[in-house]
Nucleic acid binder design. Structure first.
Lengths: 248, 248
DNA sequence: AGTCAATAGAATTTGGAAATTATTGAACTA
DNA sequence: TAGTTCAATAATTTCCAAATTCTATTGACT
Protein backbone atom coordinates (compact mmCIF):
# COMPACT_ATOMS: atom_id res chain seq x y z
CA UNK A 1 0.00 0.00 0.00
CA UNK A 2 1.28 3.40 -0.96
CA UNK A 3 2.30 6.03 1.56
CA UNK A 4 0.12 9.10 2.11
CA UNK A 5 1.48 12.57 1.56
CA UNK A 6 0.19 15.45 3.65
CA UNK A 7 -1.61 16.88 0.65
CA UNK A 8 -3.43 13.61 0.08
CA UNK A 9 -4.50 13.54 3.69
CA UNK A 10 -5.87 17.10 3.40
CA UNK A 11 -7.89 16.18 0.32
CA UNK A 12 -9.43 13.23 2.09
CA UNK A 13 -10.32 15.15 5.21
CA UNK A 14 -11.33 18.72 4.39
CA UNK A 15 -11.76 19.49 8.10
CA UNK A 16 -7.98 19.61 8.33
CA UNK A 17 -7.38 23.15 7.17
CA UNK A 18 -3.80 23.44 8.33
CA UNK A 19 -1.13 23.46 5.68
CA UNK A 20 1.61 21.92 7.76
CA UNK A 21 1.68 18.95 10.10
CA UNK A 22 2.97 21.18 12.88
CA UNK A 23 -0.04 23.49 12.60
CA UNK A 24 -2.39 20.54 12.44
CA UNK A 25 -0.92 19.00 15.57
CA UNK A 26 -1.12 22.42 17.21
CA UNK A 27 -4.84 22.68 16.42
CA UNK A 28 -5.64 19.20 17.67
CA UNK A 29 -3.52 19.44 20.79
CA UNK A 30 -5.00 22.81 21.66
CA UNK A 31 -8.51 21.43 21.30
CA UNK A 32 -7.70 18.37 23.37
CA UNK A 33 -6.46 20.60 26.16
CA UNK A 34 -9.41 23.01 25.97
CA UNK A 35 -11.94 20.19 26.13
CA UNK A 36 -10.14 18.57 29.02
CA UNK A 37 -9.45 15.47 26.96
CA UNK A 38 -5.88 15.96 28.07
CA UNK A 39 -6.13 16.78 31.75
CA UNK A 40 -4.47 19.62 33.62
CA UNK A 41 -1.04 18.61 34.88
CA UNK A 42 -0.76 15.62 32.54
CA UNK A 43 2.70 14.89 31.24
CA UNK A 44 3.07 15.23 27.48
CA UNK A 45 5.70 12.76 26.30
CA UNK A 46 6.78 13.14 22.72
CA UNK A 47 6.33 9.41 22.00
CA UNK A 48 2.76 9.54 23.32
CA UNK A 49 1.87 12.56 21.20
CA UNK A 50 3.67 11.09 18.21
CA UNK A 51 1.35 8.12 18.37
CA UNK A 52 -1.78 10.09 19.20
CA UNK A 53 -1.47 12.51 16.28
CA UNK A 54 0.42 10.26 13.87
CA UNK A 55 3.22 12.75 13.33
CA UNK A 56 6.96 12.95 13.70
CA UNK A 57 8.83 14.42 16.61
CA UNK A 58 9.64 17.75 14.98
CA UNK A 59 6.08 18.96 14.35
CA UNK A 60 5.00 17.73 17.77
CA UNK A 61 7.71 19.78 19.42
CA UNK A 62 6.82 22.84 17.37
CA UNK A 63 3.21 22.60 18.50
CA UNK A 64 4.29 22.20 22.12
CA UNK A 65 6.55 25.23 21.90
CA UNK A 66 3.76 27.37 20.51
CA UNK A 67 1.30 26.25 23.18
CA UNK A 68 3.87 26.83 25.90
CA UNK A 69 4.13 30.50 24.94
CA UNK A 70 0.35 30.70 25.23
CA UNK A 71 0.55 29.08 28.65
CA UNK A 72 -1.73 26.19 27.78
CA UNK A 73 1.33 23.99 28.08
CA UNK A 74 4.16 24.31 30.53
CA UNK A 75 7.77 23.78 29.47
CA UNK A 76 10.74 22.96 31.65
CA UNK A 77 14.05 22.78 29.86
CA UNK A 78 15.35 19.22 29.75
CA UNK A 79 12.25 17.95 31.53
CA UNK A 80 9.69 18.13 28.80
CA UNK A 81 6.15 19.44 28.69
CA UNK A 82 3.00 19.26 30.81
CA UNK A 83 -0.55 20.43 30.32
CA UNK A 84 -0.71 23.61 32.38
CA UNK A 85 -2.10 23.13 35.86
CA UNK A 86 -5.33 24.64 37.22
CA UNK A 87 -6.29 25.82 40.69
CA UNK A 88 -8.86 27.91 42.52
CA UNK A 89 -6.38 30.73 42.94
CA UNK A 90 -5.58 30.52 39.22
CA UNK A 91 -9.22 30.73 38.29
CA UNK A 92 -9.81 33.72 40.55
CA UNK A 93 -6.84 35.57 39.09
CA UNK A 94 -7.94 34.69 35.58
CA UNK A 95 -11.49 35.88 36.21
CA UNK A 96 -10.30 39.16 37.65
CA UNK A 97 -8.01 39.79 34.71
CA UNK A 98 -10.69 38.94 32.16
CA UNK A 99 -13.03 41.51 33.70
CA UNK A 100 -10.36 44.19 33.52
CA UNK A 101 -9.37 43.49 29.95
CA UNK A 102 -12.83 42.89 28.60
CA UNK A 103 -14.17 46.02 30.24
CA UNK A 104 -11.70 48.11 28.29
CA UNK A 105 -12.38 46.23 25.06
CA UNK A 106 -16.11 46.60 25.54
CA UNK A 107 -16.05 50.31 26.29
CA UNK A 108 -13.83 51.09 23.32
CA UNK A 109 -15.89 48.89 21.03
CA UNK A 110 -19.19 50.48 22.09
CA UNK A 111 -17.67 53.91 21.55
CA UNK A 112 -16.28 53.23 18.09
CA UNK A 113 -18.45 50.50 16.62
CA UNK A 114 -20.23 51.26 13.33
CA UNK A 115 -23.26 49.81 11.53
CA UNK A 116 -21.40 46.80 10.20
CA UNK A 117 -20.26 46.03 13.75
CA UNK A 118 -23.84 46.14 15.04
CA UNK A 119 -25.05 43.89 12.26
CA UNK A 120 -22.34 41.35 12.97
CA UNK A 121 -23.42 41.20 16.60
CA UNK A 122 -27.04 40.61 15.66
CA UNK A 123 -25.99 37.96 13.17
CA UNK A 124 -23.72 36.02 15.48
CA UNK A 125 -26.26 36.17 18.28
CA UNK A 126 -28.92 34.77 15.99
CA UNK A 127 -26.74 31.86 14.98
CA UNK A 128 -25.75 31.16 18.56
CA UNK A 129 -29.31 31.22 19.83
CA UNK A 130 -30.38 28.58 17.31
CA UNK A 131 -27.67 26.15 18.27
CA UNK A 132 -27.98 23.71 21.18
CA UNK A 133 -25.57 24.08 24.05
CA UNK A 134 -24.95 20.36 24.20
CA UNK A 135 -24.41 17.89 21.39
CA UNK A 136 -26.65 15.48 23.29
CA UNK A 137 -30.32 16.03 24.15
CA UNK A 138 -30.33 14.79 27.70
CA UNK A 139 -26.86 15.07 29.20
CA UNK A 140 -24.01 17.45 28.50
CA UNK A 141 -21.71 16.66 25.60
CA UNK A 142 -19.13 19.05 24.15
CA UNK A 143 -20.62 20.75 21.10
CA UNK A 144 -17.89 22.18 18.89
CA UNK A 145 -20.40 24.16 16.82
CA UNK A 146 -21.89 25.93 19.83
CA UNK A 147 -18.43 26.64 21.21
CA UNK A 148 -17.38 28.21 17.93
CA UNK A 149 -20.50 30.36 17.63
CA UNK A 150 -20.20 31.38 21.26
CA UNK A 151 -16.72 32.69 20.61
CA UNK A 152 -17.87 34.40 17.44
CA UNK A 153 -20.56 36.29 19.34
CA UNK A 154 -18.29 37.49 22.12
CA UNK A 155 -15.61 38.41 19.61
CA UNK A 156 -18.12 40.36 17.53
CA UNK A 157 -19.08 42.45 20.55
CA UNK A 158 -15.52 43.64 21.19
CA UNK A 159 -14.36 43.58 17.56
CA UNK A 160 -14.48 47.39 17.22
CA UNK A 161 -12.18 48.09 20.16
CA UNK A 162 -9.44 49.24 17.81
CA UNK A 163 -6.61 47.10 19.15
CA UNK A 164 -5.45 43.76 17.82
CA UNK A 165 -3.46 43.39 21.01
CA UNK A 166 -6.50 43.64 23.21
CA UNK A 167 -8.37 41.17 21.02
CA UNK A 168 -5.60 38.61 21.19
CA UNK A 169 -5.29 39.02 24.97
CA UNK A 170 -9.02 38.41 25.29
CA UNK A 171 -8.73 35.34 23.12
CA UNK A 172 -5.90 33.94 25.18
CA UNK A 173 -7.84 34.44 28.38
CA UNK A 174 -10.95 32.85 26.87
CA UNK A 175 -8.86 29.81 25.99
CA UNK A 176 -7.80 29.53 29.59
CA UNK A 177 -11.31 30.09 30.90
CA UNK A 178 -12.70 27.46 28.54
CA UNK A 179 -10.61 24.81 30.24
CA UNK A 180 -12.20 25.64 33.56
CA UNK A 181 -15.63 25.88 31.97
CA UNK A 182 -15.38 22.36 30.57
CA UNK A 183 -14.54 21.07 34.03
CA UNK A 184 -17.96 22.16 35.26
CA UNK A 185 -19.99 22.09 32.07
CA UNK A 186 -21.78 18.86 32.95
CA UNK A 187 -22.87 20.33 36.26
CA UNK A 188 -23.95 23.74 35.03
CA UNK A 189 -25.61 22.48 31.88
CA UNK A 190 -29.18 21.97 33.06
CA UNK A 191 -29.25 24.99 35.36
CA UNK A 192 -28.07 27.92 33.37
CA UNK A 193 -29.89 30.01 30.81
CA UNK A 194 -27.02 31.34 28.77
CA UNK A 195 -29.25 32.48 25.94
CA UNK A 196 -30.86 35.19 28.07
CA UNK A 197 -27.49 36.33 29.37
CA UNK A 198 -26.25 36.80 25.82
CA UNK A 199 -29.43 38.56 24.74
CA UNK A 200 -29.23 41.03 27.63
CA UNK A 201 -25.62 41.74 26.75
CA UNK A 202 -26.44 42.29 23.11
CA UNK A 203 -29.25 44.70 23.92
CA UNK A 204 -27.10 46.78 26.24
CA UNK A 205 -24.34 46.91 23.65
CA UNK A 206 -26.66 47.93 20.81
CA UNK A 207 -28.18 50.59 23.09
CA UNK A 208 -24.58 51.80 23.60
CA UNK A 209 -25.09 51.52 27.32
CA UNK A 210 -21.46 50.87 28.22
CA UNK A 211 -21.89 50.74 31.99
CA UNK A 212 -24.68 48.20 31.77
CA UNK A 213 -22.87 46.14 29.16
CA UNK A 214 -19.75 46.00 31.31
CA UNK A 215 -21.77 44.97 34.35
CA UNK A 216 -23.45 42.19 32.39
CA UNK A 217 -20.23 40.98 30.83
CA UNK A 218 -18.51 40.92 34.18
CA UNK A 219 -21.41 39.05 35.76
CA UNK A 220 -21.30 36.59 32.86
CA UNK A 221 -17.63 35.93 33.49
CA UNK A 222 -18.03 35.65 37.24
CA UNK A 223 -21.02 33.33 36.96
CA UNK A 224 -18.98 30.80 35.00
CA UNK A 225 -16.20 31.02 37.56
CA UNK A 226 -18.59 30.58 40.48
CA UNK A 227 -20.10 27.47 38.96
CA UNK A 228 -16.66 25.94 38.62
CA UNK A 229 -15.70 26.90 42.16
CA UNK A 230 -18.95 25.61 43.69
CA UNK A 231 -19.04 22.43 41.66
CA UNK A 232 -16.01 21.39 43.59
CA UNK A 233 -16.24 17.77 42.50
CA UNK A 234 -13.10 18.00 40.40
CA UNK A 235 -11.15 18.48 43.63
CA UNK A 236 -9.51 21.54 42.22
CA UNK A 237 -6.43 22.38 44.28
CA UNK A 238 -6.59 25.65 46.19
CA UNK A 239 -3.40 27.04 44.77
CA UNK A 240 -0.57 26.11 42.46
CA UNK A 241 1.90 23.75 44.06
CA UNK A 242 5.33 25.41 43.83
CA UNK A 243 6.90 21.99 43.31
CA UNK A 244 4.49 21.00 40.54
CA UNK A 245 6.25 20.88 37.16
CA UNK A 246 3.00 21.87 35.44
CA UNK A 247 2.75 25.01 37.57
CA UNK A 248 4.35 27.32 34.95
CA UNK B 1 40.26 18.98 17.48
CA UNK B 2 37.58 17.63 19.79
CA UNK B 3 33.92 18.50 19.45
CA UNK B 4 32.24 20.83 21.94
CA UNK B 5 29.24 19.71 23.97
CA UNK B 6 26.64 22.24 25.03
CA UNK B 7 27.79 21.96 28.60
CA UNK B 8 31.35 22.81 27.59
CA UNK B 9 30.12 25.83 25.73
CA UNK B 10 28.17 27.01 28.79
CA UNK B 11 31.23 26.70 30.98
CA UNK B 12 33.28 28.79 28.60
CA UNK B 13 30.68 31.53 28.28
CA UNK B 14 28.85 32.05 31.56
CA UNK B 15 26.61 34.67 29.93
CA UNK B 16 24.73 31.79 28.30
CA UNK B 17 22.40 30.84 31.12
CA UNK B 18 19.99 28.78 29.06
CA UNK B 19 20.00 25.07 29.60
CA UNK B 20 19.05 24.11 26.07
CA UNK B 21 20.29 25.30 22.71
CA UNK B 22 16.72 26.18 21.72
CA UNK B 23 16.34 28.51 24.69
CA UNK B 24 19.72 30.04 24.05
CA UNK B 25 18.86 30.75 20.41
CA UNK B 26 15.53 32.14 21.57
CA UNK B 27 17.27 34.57 23.93
CA UNK B 28 19.77 35.74 21.34
CA UNK B 29 17.27 36.03 18.54
CA UNK B 30 14.85 37.95 20.72
CA UNK B 31 17.60 40.37 21.69
CA UNK B 32 18.71 40.82 18.09
CA UNK B 33 15.16 41.73 17.13
CA UNK B 34 14.63 44.09 20.07
CA UNK B 35 17.84 45.98 19.38
CA UNK B 36 17.01 46.26 15.71
CA UNK B 37 20.07 44.22 14.81
CA UNK B 38 17.69 42.16 12.76
CA UNK B 39 15.49 44.69 11.03
CA UNK B 40 11.69 44.73 10.83
CA UNK B 41 10.46 42.76 7.84
CA UNK B 42 13.73 40.90 7.35
CA UNK B 43 13.43 37.33 6.17
CA UNK B 44 14.72 34.75 8.62
CA UNK B 45 16.07 31.81 6.67
CA UNK B 46 16.96 28.77 8.71
CA UNK B 47 20.37 28.43 7.07
CA UNK B 48 21.20 32.05 7.92
CA UNK B 49 20.18 31.62 11.55
CA UNK B 50 21.91 28.27 11.76
CA UNK B 51 25.14 29.97 10.86
CA UNK B 52 24.56 33.06 12.96
CA UNK B 53 23.86 31.18 16.19
CA UNK B 54 25.89 28.06 15.47
CA UNK B 55 23.01 25.71 16.10
CA UNK B 56 21.08 23.03 14.25
CA UNK B 57 17.81 23.51 12.47
CA UNK B 58 15.58 22.10 15.21
CA UNK B 59 16.48 24.54 18.00
CA UNK B 60 16.35 27.42 15.53
CA UNK B 61 12.84 26.43 14.54
CA UNK B 62 11.76 26.06 18.13
CA UNK B 63 12.96 29.56 18.91
CA UNK B 64 11.16 30.94 15.85
CA UNK B 65 7.92 29.23 16.83
CA UNK B 66 8.07 30.70 20.31
CA UNK B 67 8.78 34.20 19.02
CA UNK B 68 5.99 33.92 16.48
CA UNK B 69 3.46 33.35 19.25
CA UNK B 70 4.77 36.52 20.89
CA UNK B 71 4.40 38.39 17.60
CA UNK B 72 8.04 39.41 17.39
CA UNK B 73 8.32 37.06 14.46
CA UNK B 74 5.75 36.37 11.80
CA UNK B 75 5.12 32.86 10.52
CA UNK B 76 3.54 31.81 7.24
CA UNK B 77 3.10 28.08 6.82
CA UNK B 78 5.41 26.74 4.12
CA UNK B 79 6.89 30.18 3.56
CA UNK B 80 9.04 30.55 6.60
CA UNK B 81 9.57 33.36 9.06
CA UNK B 82 10.08 37.13 9.02
CA UNK B 83 10.89 39.68 11.67
CA UNK B 84 7.53 41.29 12.41
CA UNK B 85 6.92 44.50 10.48
CA UNK B 86 6.50 47.96 12.01
CA UNK B 87 4.40 50.94 10.96
CA UNK B 88 3.03 54.23 12.24
CA UNK B 89 -0.43 52.73 12.60
CA UNK B 90 1.08 49.80 14.48
CA UNK B 91 2.90 52.09 16.87
CA UNK B 92 -0.21 54.14 17.55
CA UNK B 93 -2.24 51.04 18.29
CA UNK B 94 0.50 49.66 20.49
CA UNK B 95 0.80 52.91 22.43
CA UNK B 96 -2.94 53.10 23.00
CA UNK B 97 -3.05 49.52 24.25
CA UNK B 98 -0.09 50.00 26.56
CA UNK B 99 -1.79 52.94 28.22
CA UNK B 100 -4.95 50.91 28.80
CA UNK B 101 -3.19 47.87 30.20
CA UNK B 102 -0.62 49.70 32.27
CA UNK B 103 -3.26 51.99 33.76
CA UNK B 104 -5.07 48.98 35.19
CA UNK B 105 -1.83 47.39 36.39
CA UNK B 106 -0.74 50.63 38.00
CA UNK B 107 -4.02 51.29 39.80
CA UNK B 108 -4.22 47.76 41.18
CA UNK B 109 -0.59 47.80 42.21
CA UNK B 110 -0.90 51.14 44.01
CA UNK B 111 -3.98 49.85 45.81
CA UNK B 112 -2.47 46.58 46.96
CA UNK B 113 1.28 47.19 47.19
CA UNK B 114 2.94 46.60 50.56
CA UNK B 115 6.17 47.75 52.18
CA UNK B 116 8.34 45.28 50.33
CA UNK B 117 6.85 46.53 47.07
CA UNK B 118 7.70 50.14 47.93
CA UNK B 119 11.23 49.20 48.86
CA UNK B 120 11.76 47.35 45.61
CA UNK B 121 10.66 50.44 43.68
CA UNK B 122 13.10 52.65 45.56
CA UNK B 123 15.86 50.12 45.05
CA UNK B 124 15.35 49.65 41.32
CA UNK B 125 15.05 53.39 40.78
CA UNK B 126 18.32 53.96 42.58
CA UNK B 127 20.12 51.42 40.43
CA UNK B 128 18.60 52.81 37.26
CA UNK B 129 19.49 56.40 38.08
CA UNK B 130 23.18 55.49 38.54
CA UNK B 131 23.49 53.81 35.19
CA UNK B 132 24.19 55.70 31.97
CA UNK B 133 21.56 55.59 29.27
CA UNK B 134 24.14 54.97 26.57
CA UNK B 135 27.11 52.64 26.59
CA UNK B 136 29.10 55.42 24.89
CA UNK B 137 29.87 58.86 26.36
CA UNK B 138 29.22 60.97 23.29
CA UNK B 139 26.84 59.21 20.95
CA UNK B 140 24.06 56.73 21.59
CA UNK B 141 24.99 53.06 21.91
CA UNK B 142 22.70 50.31 23.16
CA UNK B 143 23.39 49.69 26.84
CA UNK B 144 22.12 46.28 27.91
CA UNK B 145 22.61 47.10 31.58
CA UNK B 146 20.47 50.23 31.44
CA UNK B 147 17.80 48.42 29.43
CA UNK B 148 17.64 45.68 32.05
CA UNK B 149 17.42 48.08 34.98
CA UNK B 150 14.84 50.17 33.14
CA UNK B 151 12.63 47.13 32.81
CA UNK B 152 13.23 46.17 36.42
CA UNK B 153 12.04 49.58 37.58
CA UNK B 154 8.86 49.61 35.53
CA UNK B 155 8.14 46.00 36.50
CA UNK B 156 8.64 46.82 40.16
CA UNK B 157 6.04 49.56 39.96
CA UNK B 158 3.30 47.26 38.68
CA UNK B 159 4.49 44.12 40.44
CA UNK B 160 1.74 44.23 43.06
CA UNK B 161 -1.14 44.31 40.56
CA UNK B 162 -2.13 40.80 41.54
CA UNK B 163 -2.28 39.26 38.08
CA UNK B 164 0.44 37.30 36.34
CA UNK B 165 -1.58 37.69 33.16
CA UNK B 166 -1.48 41.45 33.30
CA UNK B 167 2.24 41.40 34.01
CA UNK B 168 2.98 39.17 31.06
CA UNK B 169 0.83 41.30 28.75
CA UNK B 170 2.74 44.38 29.87
CA UNK B 171 6.01 42.61 29.23
CA UNK B 172 4.96 41.58 25.75
CA UNK B 173 3.93 45.12 24.90
CA UNK B 174 7.18 46.49 26.29
CA UNK B 175 9.07 44.13 24.02
CA UNK B 176 7.19 45.51 21.06
CA UNK B 177 7.67 49.10 22.16
CA UNK B 178 11.38 48.55 22.66
CA UNK B 179 11.79 47.79 18.98
CA UNK B 180 10.30 51.14 18.09
CA UNK B 181 12.29 52.86 20.80
CA UNK B 182 15.59 51.58 19.42
CA UNK B 183 14.67 52.97 16.02
CA UNK B 184 14.71 56.48 17.44
CA UNK B 185 17.11 56.11 20.35
CA UNK B 186 19.97 57.83 18.60
CA UNK B 187 17.80 60.84 17.88
CA UNK B 188 16.15 61.14 21.27
CA UNK B 189 19.28 60.40 23.27
CA UNK B 190 20.67 63.88 23.82
CA UNK B 191 17.31 65.57 24.25
CA UNK B 192 15.39 63.59 26.80
CA UNK B 193 15.69 63.57 30.58
CA UNK B 194 14.38 60.15 31.42
CA UNK B 195 15.72 60.21 34.93
CA UNK B 196 13.31 62.99 35.97
CA UNK B 197 10.41 61.22 34.34
CA UNK B 198 11.12 58.09 36.34
CA UNK B 199 11.58 60.02 39.56
CA UNK B 200 8.25 61.80 39.15
CA UNK B 201 6.55 58.50 38.52
CA UNK B 202 8.15 56.91 41.56
CA UNK B 203 7.10 59.78 43.81
CA UNK B 204 3.50 59.67 42.62
CA UNK B 205 3.39 55.92 43.14
CA UNK B 206 4.90 56.05 46.63
CA UNK B 207 2.42 58.80 47.51
CA UNK B 208 -0.29 56.39 46.31
CA UNK B 209 -1.57 59.08 43.98
CA UNK B 210 -3.02 56.75 41.36
CA UNK B 211 -4.44 59.42 39.07
CA UNK B 212 -1.17 61.29 38.90
CA UNK B 213 0.85 58.12 38.46
CA UNK B 214 -1.35 57.01 35.59
CA UNK B 215 -1.07 60.40 33.92
CA UNK B 216 2.72 60.33 34.20
CA UNK B 217 3.01 56.74 33.01
CA UNK B 218 0.77 57.49 30.04
CA UNK B 219 2.76 60.60 29.19
CA UNK B 220 5.97 58.56 29.46
CA UNK B 221 4.62 56.03 27.00
CA UNK B 222 3.31 58.65 24.60
CA UNK B 223 6.51 60.66 24.68
CA UNK B 224 8.52 57.69 23.43
CA UNK B 225 6.00 57.12 20.68
CA UNK B 226 6.03 60.77 19.62
CA UNK B 227 9.79 60.79 19.35
CA UNK B 228 9.69 57.79 17.05
CA UNK B 229 6.91 59.29 14.95
CA UNK B 230 8.60 62.69 14.64
CA UNK B 231 12.06 61.31 14.02
CA UNK B 232 10.73 60.06 10.76
CA UNK B 233 14.12 59.27 9.34
CA UNK B 234 13.53 55.54 9.35
CA UNK B 235 10.85 56.10 6.73
CA UNK B 236 8.41 54.14 8.79
CA UNK B 237 5.51 53.04 6.59
CA UNK B 238 2.14 54.58 7.43
CA UNK B 239 0.34 51.29 7.76
CA UNK B 240 0.91 47.58 7.39
CA UNK B 241 1.00 46.46 3.79
CA UNK B 242 -1.65 43.74 3.43
CA UNK B 243 0.59 41.97 0.91
CA UNK B 244 3.63 42.07 3.17
CA UNK B 245 4.53 38.60 4.47
CA UNK B 246 5.93 40.16 7.66
CA UNK B 247 2.60 41.87 8.35
CA UNK B 248 1.32 39.12 10.70
C1' DA C 1 3.19 41.81 -25.25
C1' DG C 2 0.62 38.81 -22.20
C1' DT C 3 -0.85 34.40 -20.26
C1' DC C 4 -0.01 29.95 -19.00
C1' DA C 5 2.46 25.51 -18.10
C1' DA C 6 6.55 23.09 -17.28
C1' DT C 7 10.81 22.88 -14.99
C1' DA C 8 14.85 23.65 -12.25
C1' DG C 9 16.48 25.49 -8.14
C1' DA C 10 15.88 27.15 -3.43
C1' DA C 11 13.71 26.98 0.93
C1' DT C 12 10.80 24.88 4.25
C1' DT C 13 9.17 20.92 6.65
C1' DT C 14 9.51 16.36 8.44
C1' DG C 15 11.04 11.78 10.42
C1' DG C 16 14.30 9.27 12.66
C1' DA C 17 18.82 8.27 14.59
C1' DA C 18 22.36 9.90 17.64
C1' DA C 19 23.75 12.60 21.55
C1' DT C 20 22.73 14.50 25.81
C1' DT C 21 20.48 14.76 30.10
C1' DA C 22 17.26 13.25 33.75
C1' DT C 23 15.44 9.50 36.56
C1' DT C 24 15.26 5.28 38.83
C1' DG C 25 16.75 1.86 41.86
C1' DA C 26 20.22 -1.13 43.76
C1' DA C 27 24.36 -1.47 46.36
C1' DC C 28 27.01 0.72 49.69
C1' DT C 29 28.43 3.76 53.64
C1' DA C 30 28.05 6.31 57.95
C1' DT D 1 17.49 4.40 58.76
C1' DA D 2 18.95 8.09 56.06
C1' DG D 3 21.83 9.55 52.76
C1' DT D 4 25.38 8.75 48.61
C1' DT D 5 27.18 6.77 44.70
C1' DC D 6 26.79 4.71 40.59
C1' DA D 7 25.07 2.15 36.82
C1' DA D 8 20.94 1.13 34.02
C1' DT D 9 17.08 2.94 31.97
C1' DA D 10 14.03 6.36 30.11
C1' DA D 11 13.14 10.76 28.25
C1' DT D 12 14.45 14.92 26.09
C1' DT D 13 17.07 17.43 22.81
C1' DT D 14 19.70 17.90 18.69
C1' DC D 15 21.51 17.12 14.10
C1' DC D 16 20.87 15.97 9.52
C1' DA D 17 19.22 14.01 5.27
C1' DA D 18 15.07 13.01 2.71
C1' DA D 19 10.59 14.62 1.30
C1' DT D 20 7.68 18.25 0.27
C1' DT D 21 6.47 22.72 -1.13
C1' DC D 22 7.35 27.27 -2.90
C1' DT D 23 9.63 30.55 -6.37
C1' DA D 24 11.71 32.13 -10.45
C1' DT D 25 12.54 31.33 -15.15
C1' DT D 26 11.97 29.69 -19.49
C1' DG D 27 9.52 28.83 -23.51
C1' DA D 28 5.27 27.64 -25.99
C1' DC D 29 1.04 29.49 -27.26
C1' DT D 30 -2.70 33.02 -27.99
Amino acid sequence: MAEQTQLERSKEDPKVASTTVASSVYDQLRLDILTGDLQPGEKLRSEFLRGRYKAGISPVREALNRLATERLVCREDQRGFHVAAVSKAGLIELTKTRCWIEERALRESIEHGDDAWEEQIVLTFHRLSRTPRSADDQTYAFNAKWEGLHRDFHNAVIAACGSHWLLSFCEQLVDQADRYRQLAAAVSYPKRNERDEHQDLMEAVLARDADRAVALQCAHIHKTADIVLNANLNNLPDDFDPADPSRC
